[in-house]
Amino acid sequence: MIRNVTVYCSSSNVAPEPYFACAARLGRGLAERGMGLVFGGGHVGLMGRTADAVMQYGGTVTGIIPRFLEEREVAHYGISELVVVETMHERKMKLTEWGDAFVILPGGFGTLDELMEIITWKHLGHHRKPILLLNCEGFWNPLLAFFRRIADDRMVNGDYDSYYTVCSTPEEVFDILDAIKKPAC
Results as ranks from 00 to 15, higher is better:
Tyr163Ser: 08
Pro106Asp: 14
Gly110Tyr: 11
Leu115Ala: 02
His43Cys: 14
Met116Glu: 14
His126Ser: 10
Gly158Ser: 15
Glu17Pro: 15
His43Phe: 12
Met1Trp: 11
Phe68Glu: 14
Val84Glu: 11
Pro66Ile: 07
Ala53Phe: 03
Leu143Gly: 05
Pro18Thr: 02
Ile131Trp: 06
Asn135Gly: 01
Ala75His: 13
Gly45Cys: 04
Lys182Tyr: 05
Val44Ala: 11
Gln56Asp: 15
Thr169Gly: 06
Cys185Lys: 11
Asp161His: 00
Gly58Asn: 09
Ile64Lys: 06
Lys181Arg: 02
Ala101His: 04
Gly99Cys: 01
Leu69Asp: 09
Cys22Trp: 06
Glu137Gly: 12
Ala51Thr: 04
Pro16Gln: 09
Ala151Met: 11
His43Ile: 10
Leu82Ser: 10
Tyr77Cys: 13
Asn4Cys: 12
Ala151Leu: 10
Asp153His: 12
Glu114Ile: 00
Pro18Met: 01
His127Leu: 07
Arg3Met: 07
Asn135Ile: 00
Thr96Gln: 14
Asp152Leu: 02
Arg33Tyr: 04
Asn4Ser: 13
Lys181Val: 00
Trp121Tyr: 06
Ile119His: 09
Ala101Phe: 04
Asn135Val: 01
Trp121Arg: 05
Lys94Glu: 07
Arg149Gly: 09
Leu37Cys: 03
Val61Gln: 01
Leu132Met: 12
Asn135Arg: 02
Glu114Ala: 01
Glu117Tyr: 03
Glu172Trp: 02
Val44Arg: 13
Thr169Trp: 06
Arg3Phe: 08
Val103Asp: 01
Cys136Leu: 05
Pro142Phe: 04
Thr6Trp: 02
Ala15His: 05
Ala145Gly: 09
Gly29Cys: 03
Val54Phe: 14
Ile180Val: 12
Asn135Trp: 00
Val14Glu: 09
Pro66Thr: 11
Ile150Met: 07
Leu134Met: 08
His123Cys: 06
Arg154Pro: 08
Val103His: 02
Asp159Tyr: 03
Cys22Gly: 13
Leu144Gln: 01
Val44Asp: 11
Met1Cys: 13
Lys94Gln: 10
Ser80Leu: 15
Val166Phe: 00
Asp52Ser: 14
Leu46Ser: 10
Glu86Thr: 15
Ala184Gln: 13
Asp175Gly: 11
Met55Leu: 07
Val156Glu: 02
Leu30Met: 14
Asp52Lys: 12
Leu95Val: 14
Gly110Lys: 15
Cys167Ile: 08
Lys94Pro: 06
Asp100Asn: 15
Leu115Trp: 00
Gly34Cys: 08
Glu117Pro: 05
Val83Asn: 14
Arg91Glu: 03
Ile2Pro: 14
His43Tyr: 15
Glu73Ser: 13
Val85Leu: 08
Ile79Asp: 07
Gly59Val: 01
Asn135Glu: 00
Pro142Asp: 04
Gln56Asn: 15
Leu30Gly: 06
Leu133Gln: 07
Leu115Asp: 02
Met116Gly: 15
Lys181Asn: 04
Gly45Tyr: 00
Met47Thr: 12
Leu124Val: 06
Ala53Asp: 03
Gly34Asp: 09
Ser10Trp: 00
Ile79Pro: 08
Met47Pro: 14
Pro18Val: 03
Lys94Cys: 06
Gly99Pro: 01
Asp178Cys: 12
Val156Arg: 03
Leu133Cys: 09
Leu132Asp: 10
His126Ala: 08
